[in-house]
Design a protein around this nucleic acid. Structure first.
Length: 225
DNA sequence: TGCCAGGCCGGGT
DNA sequence: ACCCGGCATGGC
């Protein structure tokens, strides 16, 4: 199988055994933005508490977050971890939104996909994964999201070298799949589901993984990341 | 009880 | 252009 065929086979295998994941878990595009920043290197369960706090305080709003004191915001999102830096990152995004788009997420999302990605990426504290999560799951554009699980899974299947970059991985998926935001969204969610259960850091728990039948003979499953 | 979680930045080589 | 320490809470 070619790499492209393997990536398509991965999707079929994961979808047929795990079913649709229904990502992103949020009620609104703005909640996706906030969740994308809060979940950086953090368990989603912790993020849920932080978002619940924001909702309870009526703070899930661009203006409210832009106006409020960073220290108080930090206390509200504390369960998400890295709370001081994440409060700053949230406010960085809200500041851009207010200054350049009138605090209107739809105005930002009116940009072309490349311009949207670059603009979001220009915010300090928003890197490629967070930006692409926003572009895909909040704005609905066909941009593939790469994360640590994606890299670990592809490495363990011999599809990438250890020095592959974010852009390398993204290009693999863009080359193998149709430009379909729903497909990209489901695929990334499935990779995360597989990663959580069978591809944890430093652990070689491949047994029972939906992708196990597709693992090449002799591929070492050792320390990655 | 230590290790891990849906990263990213800034300073140092 | 890399490399690395720092950031922090909660679950297993």
């Amino acid at each position: 199988m070619t790499t492209d065929e393997k990536l398509r086979a991965f999707y079929e295998a994961m979808l047929s055994t795990l079913g649709p994941q229904g990502w992103w878990p949020a009620e609104t595009p703005f909640e996706v933005v906030v969740g994308a920043i809060l979940t950086q290197n953090t368990n989603w369960k912790n993020v849920e508490r932080a978002i619940a706090n924001l909702k309870r305080e009526g703070l899930l709003d661009p203006r409210a977050l832009d106006d409020m004191d960073a220290d108080r915001l930090g206390e509200v999102i504390r369960p998400a971890g890295y709370f001081r830096i994440k409060a700053r990152r949230l406010k960085n995004f809200m500041h851009l939104l207010a200054e350049r788009f009138g605090g209107d997420l739809d105005a930002l999302f009116a940009l072309s996909t490349p311009a949207l990605r670059e603009t979001v990426l220009s915010v300090s504290g928003i890197g490629p994964e967070t930006a692409d999560s926003i572009v895909l799951y909040a704005a609905g554009r066909p941009v593939f999201v790469v994360d640590a699980y994606t890299a670990r899974i592809l490495y363990r299947h011999g599809l990438i070298e250890g020095d592959a970059t974010y852009d390398d991985l993204q290009a693999l998926f863009h080359g193998a799949l149709a430009d379909d935001a729903d497909l990209f969204g489901e695929y990334h969610a499935l990779l995360v589901a597989v990663g959580k259960q069978w591809c944890r850091k430093r652990a070689a728990l491949c047994s029972g993984c939906p992708l196990e039948p597709l693992l090449e003979e002799g591929q070492p499953v050792t320390e990655v990341f």
